[in-house]
Simulated scan of single mutants.
Amino acid sequence: MTRSTHTVDQENMTATRTVAAPAARVFAVLADPTTHAAIDGTGWVREPVDRAPLTEVGQVFRMDMYNANHPDGDYQMANKVHVLDPPRAIGWLPGQEKGDGHLEFGGWLWRYDLAPLGPSETEVRLTYDWSAVPRSIREYIQFPPFGPEHLANSLRHLAELAATSPAPTPHG
């Protein structure tokens, strides 16, 4: 039986789901930018510009995005890995590259916490936190930009991908 819950606070929302896959496999799916569009499921996340697996804190991976409410429609996010603890936690700070190549982050973050429930089940908690978003950004972007069902849907997509993906190869 798959269990799923979600909560919304003033400055963050979380969703939790039991996934029928080992934690290492779930982590491998999350650390692969080529799976992020399928995990997201909204059509906002399009293609990875940087396709290398996420392997270290500070690593930046860019994603092509689309949102009808964005001034440009098509845009790019530069995400900086801020948590990487295989196979227990992974998270990133979404940002954008400015004209001079400098990265600027908006103050929101995505984080996945994984807890093995046995050899073939993992509890996954997804957190979207916007507590550090400055007032200047909140004046033109509403937070959260989606409802709690988005996180539950993302975890459902993650569960489907993890159940059908091959086992990760061990790193030496």
Rank of each mutant, 00 (worst) to 15 (best):
S154Y: 08
A167G: 09
D74H: 14
T7H: 15
H150N: 12
T122P: 05
R111K: 10
T2H: 13
W108R: 03
T35N: 12
P168F: 15
R125E: 12
Q142W: 04
Q10G: 12
M1A: 14
E104N: 08
R62F: 11
N153Q: 14
Q142M: 04
W92G: 05
A162C: 00
D85Q: 10
V29K: 02
E56S: 15
L117W: 02
S131N: 02
A78S: 14
D129M: 02
Y140V: 01
W92L: 06
G99F: 12
S120Y: 04
R17I: 06
E47V: 00
W130R: 03
A21H: 03
R46F: 03
L84Y: 12
N69T: 05
W108N: 13
W44D: 10
P134R: 15
L155S: 00
E149S: 15
S131R: 04
L93D: 09
P53M: 12
H171R: 15
V133F: 08
W44G: 04
Y128C: 06
F146L: 07
R62E: 14
A20D: 10
T14M: 08
D32R: 07
H82N: 07
S154D: 10
F105Y: 15
G58N: 04
R138L: 06
L114T: 02
P119K: 14
E11W: 13
R3Q: 13
T122W: 05
H150M: 14
Q76K: 11
L161A: 01
T34D: 11
A15L: 11
P22Y: 01
M1D: 13
E104Y: 09
G101E: 00
A78H: 09
R156K: 13
R111P: 00
T127I: 06
T7Y: 08
V83L: 09
L30W: 01
A28V: 02
A52F: 05
S136I: 08
R88H: 11
H150L: 14
I39N: 07
T34C: 08
D85P: 00
G99E: 14
R46H: 05
P53I: 10
P145G: 01
W110H: 15
T2M: 13
E160P: 00
A28M: 06
G58E: 07
T127V: 07
E47S: 02
M65R: 07
D113Y: 03
F27R: 00
R135K: 13
L84M: 08
A78W: 10
E47I: 01
A21P: 00
T18S: 13
R62T: 12
A23N: 04
L103M: 11
W130P: 02
A21N: 03
S136H: 12
H70G: 05
R51S: 11
T35V: 01
P33K: 06
V19E: 01
P86V: 10
D113L: 06
H150T: 14
R125K: 12
A23V: 01
T18H: 11
M65Y: 06
D129H: 02
L114C: 03
I137D: 07
I137T: 11
E160R: 11
V29D: 04
L84H: 15
A163C: 01
D72H: 08
E56Q: 14
D113T: 09
D113H: 05
Q96V: 09
G101N: 01
H70Q: 05
R17P: 04
V60E: 03
G43S: 10
D64V: 05
R51K: 10
E149F: 12
M63H: 08
S136T: 09
E139C: 00
L109I: 00
S136M: 12
V49C: 10
P53W: 12
